[in-house]
Amino acid sequence: MARMPEGPPPPPVVQKLRLRYAKRGRLRFSSHRDFQRALERALRRAAVPMAYSAGFNPHPKISYANAAPTGTASEAEYIEISLAERREPEEIRDALNSALPDGLDIVDVVEAGPGLLADRLQASVWQIELFADTPGEEAAAANDSTVRDVVERFLAAERVEVQRMTKNGLRTFDAREAVLRIEVEPGVTSRPGNGCAILSLVVRHNTPAVRPDDVLSAFRAVADFAPPSPPRVTRLAQGLLDEADGSVTDPLVPDRDGAGA
């Protein structure tokens, strides 16, 4: 015999909000599950009127999409939350920012328009900082030219097979095709002393997803290149992809436009 939850069903969803958040500094070491916990607690501390799922173990209704890997920073992560009472988006942004730990920061909140958020997350812009192994301008210049050479060889290849351990075992896939663009510029280093080369990549969201560490594996495969110290990786943007010029645009624009209309 089935046991039914007691009491009335949970209140219905009256508003959906889409949030862009950043994962910065030391909080880049948080995993996706860490973020989920922190967010759910912040929602409670901020008294956001969340809509809950029904059942014995009600969850607040939150959709997560396409999280950046543990250890990488991001300026552009997206989630959608469902509310049981209407709220102003700015109010939610400010309340959550005072409830979340510094380094998990809500950047933007809009009311959801039609269409699925996940469908608009078509590509990412990644930044990879590759550090010289020793301090000084000479090492920085050498590092810069090595990196340019590696990138050139990678872009010249048709396919570059890489392997990654996934939940379903070791997978082999092409890391080249999804990469639409790579630009290299010398960096103002964020780590004092050593210079760095900064790569900007536009990567289409394929299945399996090609991640920055896959691109680094591909660099090793095509040019036997291994960074002397851990690179710092940041997702700068995520959104609608313009295949023609390889640009990536804000996925919340359609929602904002819809609200204004």
Partner: peptide
Amino acid sequence: KPIQYVGG
């Protein structure tokens, strides 16, 4: 689990 060492 590097997050356990960063505090905050």
